[in-house]
């Protein structure tokens, strides 16, 4: 297995706040990696630094063995990285189908129209509700449906690497289950590598190969997902700061 994505000592700061304080992670081709952590731990910032929405202050990011320094944010879709951001961010006044089609915009020069159509069909199989509502405005969808659309929009570019930012955020348990089933299916059927950022530790660990725990901008624990799932520290760290760990 070759290394698809490597973050090396990444530091990101927003003015006075340092959001990432030297984060290193690694994702091999075909893996699902989970990054867990509480609010404000820097999970979303990490994904944004990968898709070059926020600049690195220090450190390096390698994708397929090459440093991405010379690329612009809008080149990444072409390179095979799809980012499904926190809060879905579908375009509310565009139809479901338009939203989906835009997902392939950056990749239009590497994909054939037939490929896109085929992928779209596959996405409609994954999320049949999107097919039913393809002519509806995305803003009229429910939260869960919007999440499905956001994931679909990321998938239609046939990415090598899918960045998923809190796909279960604010969803009812039944929908959370559905989304995670879909993630598993996506991975099985397309072989896409996935970097999954989650608050829902148990679910995320169940689907991933390897996991990192991010705490206030630093990786505090890492290991194979199956090991972490049983780890008491994860439960504690997950629920909050490390101080709870101290208590026990």
């Amino acid at each position: 297995m070759s290394e698809l994505l490597v973050l090396k000592d990444v530091v990101v700061s927003y003015g006075a706040v340092t959001a990432l304080k030297g984060v290193s992670i690694k994702l091999n081709e075909g893996q699902i990696i989970a990054v867990l952590g509480a609010n404000g731990a820097g999970k979303s910032t990490m994904l944004k630094s990968i898709s070059k929405i926020v600049p690195l202050k220090e450190g390096k990011i390698f994708y397929k063995g090459k440093e991405m320094a010379s690329l612009s944010a809008h080149d990444l879709a072409f390179q095979g990285i799809s980012h499904v951001p926190e809060g879905r961010r579908v375009f509310p006044t565009l139809t479901v189908e338009e939203n989906l089609n835009l997902g392939s915009y950056g990749a239009r020069k590497r994909l054939l129209d037939e490929e896109v159509e085929e992928t779209k069909k596959w996405i409609f199989e994954l999320f049949p509700v999107l097919a039913e509502r393809k002519n509806q405005l995305a803003g009229t969808l429910s939260g869960g449906e919007q999440q499905m659309l956001a994931i679909g929009r990321g998938l239609i570019a046939k990415p090598t690497l899918l960045l998923l930012d809190e796909p279960s955020l604010g969803l009812a348990p039944i929908l959370v289950k559905e989304i995670f089933n879909a993630i598993r299916k996506i991975h099985e059927e397309s072989g896409t590598s996935i970097l999954l950022v989650e608050q829902n530790a148990k679910k995320a660990l169940a689907e991933s190969d390897y996991a990192y725990i991010l705490e206030t901008g630093k990786i505090s624990i890492e290991g194979p997902a199956s090991e972490l799932a049983g780890d008491e520290r994860v439960k504690a760290a997950y629920l909050g700061g490390s101080a709870v760990t101290k208590k026990e």
């Binding site: 509480a38 609010n39 700061g241 709870v244």
Partner: peptide, 9 residues
Amino acid sequence: EHDMNLVMG
């Protein structure tokens, strides 16, 4: 609060 330490404390 999300910080359980603070909440519980």
